[in-house]
């Protein structure tokens, strides 16, 4: 088995673990409610002007030392000036707060998966608009008891109207009063 196959199996096993089912299939009890469906397609947006200082601060916080991410003057990096570190897209995911629902009966939520596609780098001076949309809500009876899995898509667009990245985020809500801790 290659490492890729192993990772694939772990991705699938983890998905099954999240769902609490053997096969990962959703039971009729796991379907989203009408209330959940009413939130599908709900969108929220935020727009930020990208400052050099914010990119440098993020690079420092994530341990980046490469000149492409840290050399604001571009004196060491000859090809182009500063770009955002690879995971800077995460800073826009707060926009999902406008589409994900906090259910009062579940006291804990944790981040369980992400999928990102990059089309263009983010640079100082850019104006990035993040548009978030709720794409899926599934209620499941998992190993930690009743669990709600919410998935949202964030699309990042620059000032030229071009998509720079898409970020898909999966979040799980559950109650620790009944079952204990989960993942992140």
């Amino acid at each position: 088995m290659t490492g890729h196959d192993k990772n694939e199996r772990e991705h699938e096993a983890s998905a099954a673990a999240i769902s609490g089912t053997q096969s990962g299939a959703e039971s009729p009890k796991g379907m989203a409610t009408g209330e959940d469906h009413n939130k599908m397609g709900r969108r929220t947006m935020l727009t930020r002007h990208i400052e050099t200082g914010a990119l440098l601060k993020f690079a420092r916080a994530t341990g980046e030392t490469g000149p492409m991410f840290t050399d604001a003057e571009g004196s060491q990096w000859e090809k182009e000036h500063l770009v955002a570190p690879p995971t800077y897209v995460a800073t826009f995911c707060e926009v999902l707060g406008g589409v994900f629902t906090q259910h009062p009966e579940y006291n804990m939520f944790l981040h369980s998966a992400d999928a990102v596609v990059n089309y263009e780098p983010i640079r100082p001076g850019d104006t990035i608009t993040a548009t978030a949309e709720l794409s899926d809500v599934v209620r499941k009876l998992g190993s930690r008891g009743p669990t709600i899995v919410q998935r949202g898509m964030v699309t990042l667009t620059n000032q030229y109207g071009r998509t720079v990245s898409t970020v898909e985020v999966e979040m799980r809500s559950f109650s620790t009063h009944a079952t204990g801790s989960g993942n992140d």
Binding site: L110, H111, D184
Partner: peptide, 19 residues
């Protein structure tokens, strides 16, 4: 693979347990 050599096009992440 420094940014001078390769560009990160896409990735999928799964968080398996609390860190």
């Amino acid at each position: 693979a420094t940014p001078a050599v390769a560009t990160i096009v896409s990735y999928r992440i799964r968080y398996l347990r609390p860190l």
